Simulated assay, not measured.
Amino acid sequence: MTHTTEQPTEGDLLRAELAALGRHAFLGGDGGVTYLITAVDPAAPADESAACNVPHVLMYAGEQADRPAAEHREPWSAHLHGAEGDYVATIFDGSRAPLDAAADAVLCAREVTAWLAHYLGNVPPHPACTSR
């Protein structure tokens, strides 16, 4: 009997990192391009259709977020879009240094959640400001 183990995709790794930071992300696609999507509002319903109809972040690793992680070649990037899907801004433009899929997912998740926290005004005070 042969057992096959399905390898995680680039999107699986980033989704796991975002989930660890309290964010739901979903695999989406359009015209053969796949990406991850998360709603800007962390209280938005945890489903893909809800994330598409509110301000959201699209995250790309090249054109295939569903590519096996072992084939990771292009860094993640993240882009803010309005409720109608219109591009607003790039919030993370990828790592300048080549990273493996796991390290790139960690970096992108941290950058996206930090940017969203700042954007939403949920930035905790810096420790130096509260230790007086």
Rank of each mutant, 00 (worst) to 15 (best):
P75C: 05
P98S: 15
D12G: 00
Q7W: 15
M1Y: 15
C129S: 03
S131F: 03
A103P: 00
E71S: 14
C52G: 08
G29F: 02
T113W: 01
A43W: 08
A83V: 03
A83Q: 07
A50Y: 09
G62E: 05
R23D: 00
L58R: 11
L120Q: 08
E111G: 04
A61T: 07
A16S: 04
G82L: 06
E111Q: 11
R23Q: 01
H81L: 12
A65D: 02
D30H: 00
V40R: 00
W76P: 00
L80Y: 05
V123K: 07
H126I: 05
R15A: 02
V88I: 09
H126N: 07
E10I: 05
A69R: 04
H56T: 12
L120I: 07
L80M: 07
S95A: 05
P68L: 15
L99G: 02
G32N: 05
A46L: 12
G121T: 04
V57G: 08
A65R: 04
H24K: 13
D104N: 09
P127Q: 02
A44V: 02
A44E: 05
D30S: 01
A19K: 00
A97H: 05
D100N: 13
S49C: 11
I37W: 09
E111H: 08
P124A: 12
P75E: 04
V88C: 03
D41N: 03
D93T: 09
L18Y: 01
L27M: 10
N53C: 09
T113I: 06
R15D: 01
M59T: 07
T113K: 01
A105I: 05
T9H: 11
A114I: 07
E71Y: 13
A65M: 09
A70F: 15
D86L: 11
R73Y: 14
S131Y: 01
C129T: 03
L21S: 00
H72R: 12
D100L: 14
L80I: 05
R67E: 14
N53Q: 08
V88N: 06
G31H: 04
A50G: 08
G82R: 09
E17L: 04
R15W: 02
A83M: 04
A44H: 02
R110N: 00
A105K: 01
H24N: 14
A16F: 07
A89Q: 08
L80V: 06
E71N: 13
H79F: 15
G22L: 02
E74V: 06
E10W: 10
D93A: 12
A61V: 05
C52P: 03
P45Y: 11
L36I: 13
A44D: 01
E6W: 08
P98A: 15
W115V: 12
R110I: 01
Y119S: 12
M59F: 15
E74I: 12
I37N: 05
D100A: 13
N53L: 10
W115G: 06
H118M: 10
G85S: 14
I91W: 12
Q64S: 04
G22T: 01
A46G: 09
H56W: 15
A78N: 08
P45K: 10
A83G: 04
A117I: 03
L27Y: 12
T90H: 13
L18V: 00
Y35I: 02
G94A: 02
L13W: 03
Q64E: 06
L80C: 06
D66Q: 06
T9W: 08
Y60M: 09
P125T: 03
E84C: 06
H72L: 12
S49M: 12
H56Y: 14
A128N: 06
E48T: 07
F26S: 04
G22S: 03
